[in-house]
Computed example of a mutant assay.
Amino acid sequence: MNTQSNGGPGVVEEDAVPPPEQPLGSRAPRFIKRSRPLHMSWQVGVFVVGLAVVVTGVIMLPLPGPGWLVIFAGMAIWATEFVWAQLVLRWTKRKVTEAAQKALDPRVRRRNIILTTIGVVVIAVALAVYVWKFGFAMPWNVTE
Rank of each mutant, 00 (worst) to 15 (best):
M1C: 11
N2Y: 14
S5Y: 03
G7L: 05
V11N: 09
V12M: 08
V12C: 06
E14L: 15
A16S: 07
P18D: 02
P20N: 13
E21S: 14
E21P: 06
Q22S: 15
Q22F: 14
Q22V: 10
P23A: 14
P23H: 11
G25R: 03
S26F: 01
R27C: 08
P29T: 02
P29G: 06
P29D: 03
R34N: 10
R36W: 12
L38W: 12
L38K: 07
L38A: 13
H39M: 04
M40L: 09
S41H: 07
Q43R: 11
V44F: 15
V44T: 15
V46N: 00
V48A: 09
G50A: 14
L51D: 07
V53R: 01
V53M: 01
V54A: 01
V54M: 10
V55C: 13
V55K: 04
T56A: 13
G57S: 02
V58H: 05
V58W: 12
I59Y: 07
I59E: 02
I59G: 00
L61Q: 04
P64D: 07
P64I: 01
G65D: 03
G65M: 01
G65F: 02
G67D: 05
L69Q: 10
L69C: 02
L69D: 13
V70R: 01
I71N: 06
I71P: 00
F72V: 10
A73Y: 04
G74F: 07
A79F: 04
T80Q: 01
E81T: 09
V83C: 02
W84E: 08
W84F: 11
A85F: 04
A85C: 05
L87P: 02
V88F: 13
R90G: 08
T92S: 10
R94N: 09
K95W: 08
K95A: 15
K95H: 06
V96F: 12
T97F: 14
T97Y: 11
E98T: 11
K102T: 06
A103I: 00
A103M: 11
L104T: 08
P106T: 15
V108D: 02
R109T: 02
R110N: 10
R110K: 14
I113C: 01
I113Q: 11
L115H: 03
T116R: 14
T116S: 14
T116G: 13
I118W: 01
G119L: 05
V122I: 12
A124Y: 05
A124F: 06
V125S: 03
A128R: 07
Y130Q: 03
V131D: 00
V131G: 02
K133A: 11
F134H: 11
F134L: 05
G135A: 10
F136D: 04
M138S: 15
P139Y: 10
W140R: 05
W140C: 00
W140V: 07
V142G: 09
V142T: 03
V142Q: 09
V142W: 08
T143E: 15
E144F: 10
E144V: 12
